[in-house]
Amino acid sequence: MNIITGSSIMNSLSDIGVMTRRNMLRYIRLPQLLVFNALLNVVLLLLFNYVFGGAIQTGGIAYIQYFLPGFMVQTVVFGSTQTSVGLSEDLAKGMIDRFRSLPISRLAFITGRVITDAVRYAVLITLMIIVGSIMGFRFENGIMPVLSGIGLTILFGIALTWVGVFIGISVKDVETAQVAGFVWVFPLVFASSLYVPIETMPSWLQVFSNINPVTPMVDTMRALSLGGSISASLWKTLAWDAAIILIFLTLALRRYKSIGQ
């Protein structure tokens, strides 16, 4: 039975592929999952831009220019709560037990989920760029910075997806997963530089906003879209990605192993 490691790596890759395909088929066959998610984002984009946009001082640039780079980040932050919902559904329907009884690695099962979500984020971000462009948004910094910004945003989404995975397999039912998601994403999104400049907040909140992982991500994205210095925020956001993945990957794998204990 001593199969060489190469074959078990091949098996793991095949497992990840099978799991990814399974999750993708859910989005293709239940398009409403993605469609309503996308619609919600479009509605929020329109509301925030036209309702609050005029009232927020952003130092001379149009609000849509200030706001859209951050909104792309918000799309993936909100999107990661969907991960919890999908996984808790699998848990409730016994699918996770089925997968856990199969000779596949824990990592393969969860990675399949994360890859699917990365694709979902890419679709949503593209849609936001299209709608934003119609509303007057323009990239002022050329195509390469934009593409790397999108890449970084998706990476940030992947990091947060591990949080979603952990929550999804930790809570008891789908409804809880849904609510539990909002508890952590709202403070992250609003107490950051995403909607308003941090300097306009009370000083105690500025402390939180400055360490909030969303802030450096948004600052990086904004700098890549509009020009400006990125190095400080880029390193911060990469460090956050690594820390979040490390912590929540460990937690999620441990949790997966002990489901039902």
Binding site: L25, G94, D97
Partner: peptide, 13 residues
């Protein structure tokens, strides 16, 4: 092979 008390099959597939 394990068949649990409730069928664990994917409804979408």
């Amino acid at each position: 092979g394990l068949a649990g008390q409730y069928p664990a099959v994917d409804e979408i597939l």
